[in-house]
Amino acid sequence: MKPAFNERIAGALEYRRQHDLARESKILTSLDEACIEFEGSRYVNFSSNDYLGLGRDKQLLEAWQHGLSLYGCGSGASPLVTGYSSAHADLESALCDWLGFERAILFSSGFSANQALIFGLLEKGDLLVQDKLNHASLMEAGLLSAADMKRFRHNDVQHLSSFLGKASNTLVMTEGVFSMDGDTAPLVDIQSACLDRAWLAVDDAHGIGVLGSDGRGSCDEAGIRPEILVVTFGKAFGLSGAAILCSQECGDYLTQFAKHHVYSTTIPPSQAYVLTHAIGMIQTQNWRREKLAELQGVYQSKLSQVNGFVDTTTPIKPFILGDSERALTFSNYLKASGLWVAAIRPPTVATNSARLRVTLTANHTKEQVVNLSDAILENINKGY
């Protein structure tokens, strides 16, 4: 019997289309710091994770060009062969000095870093306890790892505690800022629950650069230091890649056993060079975080009394609409007004919680945020 891949593929795609869940990649052109172009039309982009507006910053562009002149385009090998350079070492050192850890290990993406951590650290008989709303990279790694995995109700420390003490090696994993809801984890209480019973690992992809003193992230904001911190460079850094920060001994262990690190070509040294430059900008350019706070205040003042508004202390502002069709329709109405806001649907979020995922960046103006808020209000008042 021939494999029935064609039938499976066709059925799965048709199901997605019929339930307004189909996804597609769109070819977009970035015009400036806050605007994009699609099929000849211009939009203000409220779906970017470039929270600090560094992605098109001229200073950062010049730093990358200089890195290219120094190191060339690629690294040419994995870090344990010939791919590791002084630029990579400098980036790791800058991360450790900034965030207060002994070791930093670089990866090409946050997805790779999260999977490398769980696959590399956990063995059969270990226990992984995750927040129910953790990122897909963490959930998939947990399901595929040799460890037992339990999920606790979102931000429910009491439920988390009920799983602890059942295995000698337990890893608790949470995000610092949750990407679809924009809320933050109760890190102080989670760390207290883990004390002497588990290691705590925090994925701070959406908190690093935005929260904390000089942008040190969610853990700094909460006044804690987990055993392991994962940071990614594709959001507030305006670039790409990721790092795991940990103790010297844990770093040595992951260097030996984290396959995503051992067997992947390392990020280009020019990229490591510009990332080190980005750290300096994040640390010193506090006006970017101040601008975000100002824009969040504008958005909240306009929409806080509207059904669907969710109050957050982060640049991620979900606007809950319920079913997928309504979210798509609402998103399209906003596009007609020149506003690009992605509709997020299941399975990315729970059934009946489809939403607009509004993200604010330091490149937006107050006028643009007011225009977005007014357009949302207008469509709500029309009954959409």
Rank of each mutant, 00 (worst) to 15 (best):
T232D: 07
Q283H: 08
G280Q: 10
T276K: 07
I320G: 00
G241K: 08
T265F: 10
P318V: 14
L239E: 10
A236F: 11
I282E: 00
R345K: 12
K317I: 09
T329G: 03
Q256K: 15
A236P: 09
L275Q: 09
F257L: 10
Q271G: 05
P269S: 09
R357V: 02
G238T: 09
K302L: 08
Y263K: 11
P318L: 11
Q368T: 03
C246H: 02
S240R: 14
S240H: 13
K335N: 07
A278Y: 05
W287E: 11
L360Y: 06
V262Y: 07
L356S: 00
T265I: 15
Q305F: 04
Q248N: 13
Q285F: 05
A293R: 07
K302H: 12
A336P: 00
H364A: 03
V306W: 04
R289G: 07
S240N: 11
H261Y: 15
T312W: 12
T284E: 13
A278I: 06
L321H: 06
A354E: 09
Q248W: 05
A350Q: 14
S247C: 08
D323G: 05
E367P: 02
Q300C: 06
I244R: 03
A336T: 04
T265P: 11
W340E: 00
L321S: 03
S270P: 06
C250P: 02
R289Q: 08
H260L: 13
T359E: 15
P346H: 12
S264C: 14
